[in-house]
Design a protein around this nucleic acid. Structure first.
Lengths: 147, 147
DNA sequence: GCTTGAGCTCAACTTAGCTTGAGGTTGTAG
DNA sequence: CTACAACCTCAAGCTAAGTTGAGCTCAAGC
């Protein structure tokens, strides 16, 4: 690790605690855009440490890689992210969390209304509301109920 | 669908809104235990409608198939589940939801402490607490950071 | 100038929760 | 009694978020 401004993938892994394979994966997903050395090796900017830290934090907050990518894509092109940028993103994330909490609370309340009822009727049970299920999950396991 | 007490997989699918393939999958995972006709076709009890409804509801509440199986396995062997059983299970689920909400709230509070800070330092950021990450996810994608 | 660790690519594997398809059988309506 | 829908069993495929391995190349120290 010569004292250039650029970091190898191993350096970056050491600094962030990430596995090398994970960093390559993140590049594939468009979360980082390293330069390449003459020989084809990845060369990262120092600011990428921060970028990767952000990814880790956002993941802890429950954001998917895709959601994180969207946030990062919104960073003004070509310049390094500032504190301001991170703050803006943090606020966006906060709304996401708030929404998630609200949804869980709604569910909990419905469950409370159901405890003791025990009906579990598809027609009557408040917990089982097909409209709530539609578009709940996005891609992945999908119930093709609405077809 | 003759007027026997037993339902074919198609009947059950029609009544629950589930795909036939999903019901077969649930059997494979031990969530239902249909009988078989002489020719090898599945024959379900009417009470399985309720069982499947429960699965759908529990999934909405965020329980995994495995967790649902655990709840269902606790039902007294050999008899049909009663309202009481469902109520007991519902209460168990409620604790799960409560825990999930609490965790999200904790996260939100930490995020609030961070908005405006913008440090995103792996050493200092409150959001990035390695101890919280350990064992957070169980199986699946795992960070091998702690190795 | 060579050896060796670090890096490269590409493909396959993991878990969860299913779907889709191929190829063959059952059961029931007419 | 036959036709055809519904059923059966595999096997393979999908997404997310990575890991692991094979087989090869790069770069840096001695």
């Amino acid at each position: 690790m010569a004292k250039t401004a650029l970091l190898s993938i191993g350096d970056l892994a050491a600094r962030t605690g990430l596995a090398v394979s994970a960093i390559r994966f993140y590049e594939e997903k468009g979360l980082v855009h390293p330069l390449r050395s003459a020989g084809g090796q990845r060369r990262f900017l120092r600011s990428d440490i921060r970028r990767l830290s952000f990814i880790l934090i956002a993941q802890q907050l429950g954001l998917s890689i895709r959601e994180i990518a969207e946030q990062l894509d919104r960073l003004p092109q070509g310049r390094n992210p500032t504190q301001r940028d991170w703050t803006r993103i943090s606020k966006a994330i906060r709304s996401t969390i708030d929404a998630r909490i609200a949804e869980l609370e709604r569910t909990r309340d419905r469950l409370d209304g159901c405890i003791g009822c025990g009906c579990l009727s598809l027609k009557k049970c408040q917990l089982y509301n097909p409209e709530d299920r539609a578009g709940l999950k996005g891609p992945g396991p999908r119930h093709l109920i609405d077809g």
